[in-house]
Design a protein around this nucleic acid. Sequence first.
DNA 1: TAGCAGAATTGGAACGATCCAAATCGGACG
DNA 2: CGTCCGATTTGGATCGTTCCAATTCTGCTA
Lengths: 354, 354
Amino acid sequence: MTDGAQGEVEVREGRATIVDVARRAGVSKSTVSLVLGGSSLVADSTRERVADAMTKLGYIYHRGAATLRGAKSGVIGMVINDLSNPFYVELAIGIEQACQGGAYIPFLANTAENPVRQQQVIRSMREHGAAGLVLAPAIGTSASELKPLLAGLPVVQVMRRLPGLKASLVAPQNKEGARKATVHLIANGHKRIAFVGGMSSLLVRDERLAGYRIALEEAGIPLDLSLVIETTTNYSGGGGAAPQLLNLPEPATAALCFNDVVAIGLVRGLTEAGVSVGADFAVIGFDDIEEAKHTLPALTSVVVNGRDLGSRAAQLLMRHLASGDFEPEAVLCPTTLAIRKSSGAPKPNPLGGN
Amino acid sequence: MTDGAQGEVEVREGRATIVDVARRAGVSKSTVSLVLGGSSLVADSTRERVADAMTKLGYIYHRGAATLRGAKSGVIGMVINDLSNPFYVELAIGIEQACQGGAYIPFLANTAENPVRQQQVIRSMREHGAAGLVLAPAIGTSASELKPLLAGLPVVQVMRRLPGLKASLVAPQNKEGARKATVHLIANGHKRIAFVGGMSSLLVRDERLAGYRIALEEAGIPLDLSLVIETTTNYSGGGGAAPQLLNLPEPATAALCFNDVVAIGLVRGLTEAGVSVGADFAVIGFDDIEEAKHTLPALTSVVVNGRDLGSRAAQLLMRHLASGDFEPEAVLCPTTLAIRKSSGAPKPNPLGGN
DNA sequence: TAGCAGAATTGGAACGATCCAAATCGGACG
DNA sequence: CGTCCGATTTGGATCGTTCCAATTCTGCTA
């Protein structure tokens, strides 16, 4: 009378195991294991009986036990530096999309630009047997602190590169993108062009800044360091830069921003100061996040396409995993310029001096 | 001569195990296990020797093996319906923050409003031994399809409630929030107030819509269904609604939107149609995402505080985990109204009609 | 110096899966 | 009717950890 097994789904004590399923289906655990593996060896009738027992018992596969015997976990980790930046969200979504239908499920962890948390998170992912990592490193990460943690694991870095780390990289052509944007501003008649946002510790900023400098140089415009402003990489960083740009002895008339979030902040700051962006002042962002198309005025931006970048990174990682060849590879994606209202030409100087 | 062990970090074949560490430190695997568990039983000198061996070998804990013996995985899963909506990103960040320093590390998975993917993702998290789940269900999820997957697992739903699922809930007071917002519009003199965005299948929309209706009713304004517009829940949904609102025989002068993203899209649509939002037309959003403060004009919005919500959800889950008591609990968070420029009063009617 | 208590350490025996070699089954064939 | 063969099925042994009971150490006391 203890075992009136005939009801619907019955969840016994704790988790049902492969052995419980086997008992219920009247086969051995080995057979159940074969069914789980989708083997063609088992007879259809048996397979059915086993599948039945599994749903009846609410069986859940125990991957931990499986990895113990060498099975792969089917998980890849996405370790992302800053999810409050929409661009990195796009990136994460791109990674996920590339994993759709594939053999891997991606788990995401946000490090919030905190290297300590990054360590924790990577460690935890390894402990759970992640097969590989897509890593957008936090600011201030050093390759040496990550090396022991990453030993033997295939890793693809996105956006940011850690010098000294032997791992693949997927990144946009930052320098060329910044150059194109600056050229556009110059072509629109601007001479006092600022570069706003980012911290000097960011390699990516160096690259974008380099493109900016090259464009100025090509146009014969001398670099004025008072036009290069470091800020935090968020809305308020951009907002704070507005007065600085306007209060210069010779004020700026245009700005290339480190990214879109900074640019949007700057647009707001300028507008509040009474400057009409797109008419009196040109602003260009970087990344072209979804939001850029919906601001007022719509934001001109260097198109990086985070989804595409993420997707490529995931594909590269899966290629590494499939081939077992972890030899680093670098993919640099070309950028384009999406020209919208925010980068309009400056008003012709009413005094006539060009 | 085979084993010249004296170098730096040496990574032998595959993953180092507890036994390798034990051998290297000259102790038994049991002792290493004790060290891992932070037991006070082992002598300090031994602990040190073991720790040393671990770093030297690049040892990585194998959680799979541990959970096999009943240890908890230390992971909680965040299953989020739509990361391309900044509000849910805020929510996720709030969950993460609550886990900081705690015993759990959160892993995030985005279901992109796809119930099938949601199943996969939840299954995968269970297979990996997630201790609990924070779940923001995808549109179209039915409780019955999730029930067997969730059996025995503590779950906290956020934002959306699945009728019939026995699980805790953390959500904002949608009805009251929408009511307050609508009252504000009415107080500013509006009579033709629209409700824009969301699909009728969303319970949350029903709640917000209910608040809107109550406010109208209280003010004696008859409900006009041509002012209630369903859209996709993204920027373009809001944009598309603009002409519909303006082309009515008796056009709307204000709109409460289902969420901020829709509202921002609507503002853009209205502006492009030549309407001055904040002067000729009032728009209120819902959620108060970071971006709302930085749009032009700044967006009036019902403050939901996603971080707080996420944080509460995580705390509730951890309380469930700590106590072992999974009895469902509902937390409804009050909302406030952040009044900004977008909801200015309508211009007095030049024709003098009230 | 034997005995003893407490501190520190240590051998299994699990846990739930996989996988290999071996066993069983069911016809078909000579 | 005995064999053989392909198709199925099945016992271990094993993976890396935890945990319990048992053992060894180390001083110290009587």
